[in-house]
């Protein structure tokens, strides 16, 4: 049987809980902390333990979620990848210029074809940001 999306998600949370518990167990402690009954590890261990229990308890539960078609999935993946590209580009690109690029790419990807709204969006947002934040408020952005 192929696991449903929901089961996959629960499996993922379970894995996360296990990893969290493992890391919590290995939190380094100075001699003061080690002597205490309740220390830096205690609450994380409780959270992790409860999470694993809660996920196991809800194992049988089915969520009334809608099935996702391939089309919308692709659209989301596109948005994520474009944003990722923007983040990579920020290494050498000015924030506001990069933002203009991201806005254009996203609007095009989501199906906007009219030139006027795209131009308006692409020019307004970075301009408002640049003028408002860098010029008027004089906030210093690291280059």
């Amino acid at each position: 049987m192929i696991p449903s999306g929901h089961q996959l998600l629960k499996l993922l949370i379970l894995g996360l809980g296990a990893g969290y518990l493992y890391t919590a167990w290995h939190i380094p402690m100075d001699p003061w902390t080690a002597e205490e009954l309740v220390n830096a590890r205690t609450l994380p261990l409780i959270y992790g333990g409860l999470l694993v229990t809660a996920v196991l308890m809800s194992w049988k539960r089915t969520a009334p979620s809608e099935a996702i078609e391939a089309g919308p999935m692709l659209r989301v993946a596109g948005v994520v990848i474009l944003t990722l590209g923007f983040l990579l580009a920020l290494q050498f690109l000015n924030l506001w210029l990069g933002l203009a690029g991201l806005l254009t790419a996203l609007a095009l990807w989501l199906g906007e074809r009219r030139l006027v709204p795209i131009t308006a969006l692409v020019i307004t947002v970075p301009m408002v940001g640049w003028v408002g934040i860098e010029l008027l408020l004089n906030l210093h952005l690291p280059d």
Binding site: V79, T83, F86, L102, L103, L106, A107, L110, G129, L141
Partner: peptide, 17 residues
Amino acid sequence: RLLIPLIVAFSLIGVYL
């Protein structure tokens, strides 16, 4: 299709600032 890019940009600037 225009609101989504706006929210994405808004949240990115928000965190970066």
